[in-house]
Design a protein around this nucleic acid. Structure first.
Length: 489
RNA sequence: GGUCUCGUGGCCGAGUGGCUUAGGCACCGGUCUGCAAAACCGGUUACAGCGGUUCGAAUCCGCUCGAGACCUCCA
């Protein structure tokens, strides 16, 4: 990495509602925890947007020279779903429906999730811990919270005592919610007589007859509440307080609010200095969700099997499309917008290839360092990938003008620009090069075919040259006649 | 109902007080070309409405209209 370009990184902190200078607790080490998926079904494109956005953040932190411990959990227990008034574990429910073991469900969808991570070019986190692998840690944290007077046991379940907590801490500081407002709004939803206070939430649930996953605890057999797993795992792997906690915006309340309460209640320390929330992916103006039916699977779009789109799009194009909006904005997915991204992405990657072969001059006609600084400035401003891309396209325009001898670049600047552009496109944005897709065996054949066509063109045998061109088009190969040579793709 | 966010040109999408023509795509014009496509260059179109603050607002404040999110299932 290039330290001369390393300026102060600013991150929008949900906790303060402001952009703050990012200073890690431990010099150049960064601890980051991101709430991962609940694997009771295949993750949809909206789920993936969050993970892609945090992949960008992870990548830029690495690029900035930080040593990052990136923890992204897998929820395989304790995630309660609420259907028809019945509360039950979502994994257990899926297992019962499909008549398999709960862990078989998790294993099945985790395989798919991992495959998606590779397809969309996400870097693997440092560790992906599971809730079921940390039952003991969860129990220990719950015991601490009880010990500190912020939780109580009732009929084999344990609840967090929000009223007691509020005497020492500010419940609602992350989401900006006031408990007295909540009370009027949500009382009807809670038929939980066991709770002392409507806002109390479960840390441990007593086992019910239809539970498929049950563990022993000091309070009897049962299973953990949803929020406690993240507190247990983040504390175990990153410490009582770490640098960044991320997740989807829809987790802000109650999940993240309750995580803060649990950590403070157990350790007396707030878990994270920076809270980051990625915004939702919309389809037709509405949040993508299963209940609305406006979701599609990440593999459907790359295979072209989604009914919502007329053709397939490469994962790189989808990733590029997502990078063109800021992670804190909602993003509207439409076919027209995807087509625009496809063309733009091609132009960007083409220009990198072009830069490799562009002629050099004695002097550069524009400031390359200034150009590159623009890349860094964009990302240092709360990971503003859309501005980064706009700045990259400024470079694209310059590169094209160099080709036409309207701008010039010297050898040193060329190498500098090329390596930085590759770095930002490939390593930071996580976009693979598009040209790798051509088959090695096809290449010599195409050279031959195009040579025959050139011969025909030289002889003004337009019928033959057009026959070749149209035939290739039908085979999905596009001929691109240039001034000196003919390309294809 | 409560809390909060947002409304930018044909589409997606940055930008928070005074030139950013943001950017991409589309469209129009041009260069190149046997023709076409591709590629490249150039250009047009905007800040939901009304009122206010200000020398000056897309950017701050108020109201109206519209959209969305959360309110213990959500990435």
């Amino acid at each position: 990495m290039n330290n001369s370009n390393k300026k102060q990184l600013f991150i929008f902190n949900t906790l303060s509602g402001k952009k703050e200078a990012f200073v890690p607790i431990n010099n150049d080490m960064v601890g980051m925890y991101v709430c991962g998926p609940t694997l009771y079904s295949e993750p949809h494109m909206g789920n993936m947007r969050t993970f892609i956005n945090f992949d960008l953040i992870y990548r830029y932190l690495l690029h900035s020279g930080y040593e990052v411990k990136y923890v992204r959990n897998i929820t395989d227990a304790g995630h309660i779903t609420n259907s028809a008034g019945e509360q039950e574990d979502s994994i257990g429910k899926a297992a019962r429906m499909e008549q398999v073991q709960p862990l078989e469900i998790v294993y099945r969808y985790n395989l798919k999730f991992q495959e998606l991570n590779r397809t969309y070019n996400l870097l693997p986190p440092s560790i992906e811990p599971t809730a079921t692998g940390h039952i003991q840690e969860q129990i220990e944290i719950i015991e601490k919270i009880i010990e500190n007077g912020f939780a109580y046991v009732k009929n084999g379940s344990v609840y967090f005592d929000v009223k007691s907590y509020m005497q020492s801490y500010d419940y609602g500081e992350l989401s900006g919610r006031k408990v007295d407002e909540l009370e009027n709004e949500t009382r009807a939803l809670n038929a939980q007589e066991e709770k002392r206070f409507f806002a109390d939430f479960a840390l441990w649930k007593k086992a019910q007859d239809n539970d498929m996953q049950i563990w022993r605890s000091p309070w009897g057999e049962g299973n953990p509440g949803w929020h406690i797993e993240c507190t247990a795992m983040s504390t175990k792997y990153l410490g009582k307080t770490f640098d960044i906690h991320g997740g989807g915006l829809d987790l802000k309340f109650p999940h993240h609010e309750d995580e803060i309460a649990q950590s403070c209640g157990a350790t007396g320390q707030s878990p994270a200095n920076f809270w980051m929330h990625a915004n939702m992916l919309n389809v037709n103006g509405k949040k993508m969700s299963k209940s609305l039916g406006n979701f599609f699977l990440p593999k459907e779009i790359v295979e072209g099997t989604s009914k919502l789109f007329s053709k397939a799009y490469s994962p790189q194009v989808i990733r590029f499309f997502m990078m063109q909006s800021h992670y804190r904005s909602t993003l509207d997915l439409t076919e027209e917008a995807l087509n625009a991204a496809e063309k733009g992405f091609e132009r960007l990657t083409d220009s990198i290839s072009l830069l490799e072969n562009v002629p050099v001059s004695d002097d550069s006609s524009f400031s390359i360092p200034l150009c590159i600084q623009g890349f860094y400035d964009a990302m240092n401003d709360d990971f503003n990938a859309p501005i980064l891309i706009a700045n990259l396209f400024d470079a694209v325009k310059k590169i094209n003008l160099i080709k036409d001898n309207k701008e010039a670049i010297n050898a040193g600047d060329k190498d500098f620009l090329l390596s930085e552009m590759k770095c930002f496109v490939h390593d930071v944005l996580g976009l693979k090069h598009n040209s790798d897709s051509n088959d090695d065996r096809l290449s010599p054949v195409m050279d031959l075919v195009l040579e025959l066509r050139q011969k025909a063109r030289f002889n003004k045998d337009w019928d033959t040259s057009d026959l070749i061109r149209d035939g290739l088009k039908n085979a999905g190969i596009e001929v691109k006649d240039g001034k000196e040579s003919t390309g294809w793709k």
